[in-house]
Amino acid sequence: MAVPKRKMSRSNTRHRRAQWKATPVQLVPCQNRACRQPKPQHVACPTCGQYDGRQVVEPA
């Protein structure tokens, strides 16, 4: 197993970690024509409770 020969400096560690960026959640309009609220992709709409044209959860 590979083992580092020297400890990585704090500067190099922070420089490497500076590239770890989280991507924002993509919001799309709900497919329900009456709703059209923005919602995360591939998730049931929290406003109307529909997913792929079907009622899957009770609306909040």
Results as ranks from 00 to 15, higher is better:
residue 1 M to L: 09
residue 2 A to M: 10
residue 2 A to N: 08
residue 3 V to N: 13
residue 4 P to C: 07
residue 5 K to A: 07
residue 5 K to Q: 12
residue 5 K to R: 15
residue 5 K to F: 03
residue 6 R to K: 12
residue 6 R to G: 01
residue 7 K to Y: 07
residue 7 K to F: 07
residue 7 K to E: 15
residue 8 M to S: 04
residue 9 S to E: 02
residue 10 R to A: 09
residue 11 S to I: 10
residue 13 T to L: 06
residue 13 T to R: 13
residue 13 T to N: 03
residue 14 R to S: 10
residue 15 H to F: 04
residue 16 R to N: 04
residue 18 A to F: 12
residue 18 A to G: 12
residue 19 Q to T: 14
residue 19 Q to L: 10
residue 20 W to E: 10
residue 20 W to F: 11
residue 21 K to R: 15
residue 21 K to F: 13
residue 21 K to Y: 12
residue 22 A to Y: 01
residue 23 T to W: 09
residue 23 T to P: 06
residue 23 T to Q: 15
residue 24 P to E: 13
residue 25 V to N: 07
residue 25 V to D: 15
residue 25 V to A: 13
residue 25 V to E: 15
residue 26 Q to G: 00
residue 27 L to H: 05
residue 27 L to Q: 14
residue 27 L to Y: 15
residue 28 V to H: 01
residue 28 V to N: 00
residue 29 P to W: 03
residue 30 C to V: 03
residue 30 C to A: 01
residue 31 Q to V: 09
residue 31 Q to E: 06
residue 32 N to W: 01
residue 32 N to E: 06
residue 32 N to V: 00
residue 32 N to Y: 01
residue 33 R to K: 10
residue 33 R to H: 07
residue 34 A to D: 13
residue 34 A to S: 12
residue 34 A to T: 10
residue 35 C to R: 03
residue 35 C to Q: 04
residue 36 R to P: 02
residue 36 R to E: 08
residue 38 P to G: 05
residue 38 P to Y: 02
residue 38 P to N: 04
residue 39 K to F: 02
residue 41 Q to M: 12
residue 41 Q to F: 04
residue 41 Q to L: 10
residue 41 Q to V: 13
residue 41 Q to H: 03
residue 42 H to G: 07
residue 43 V to Y: 06
residue 44 A to R: 11
residue 45 C to I: 04
residue 46 P to T: 08
residue 46 P to I: 10
residue 46 P to G: 09
residue 48 C to L: 08
residue 48 C to H: 03
residue 48 C to M: 08
residue 49 G to Y: 01
residue 51 Y to V: 04
residue 51 Y to P: 02
residue 51 Y to K: 11
residue 51 Y to C: 04
residue 52 D to F: 04
residue 53 G to N: 00
residue 53 G to H: 02
residue 55 Q to E: 12
residue 57 V to H: 12
residue 57 V to I: 15
residue 57 V to M: 11
residue 59 P to F: 00
residue 59 P to K: 00
residue 59 P to V: 00
residue 59 P to Y: 01
residue 60 A to V: 11
residue 60 A to W: 04
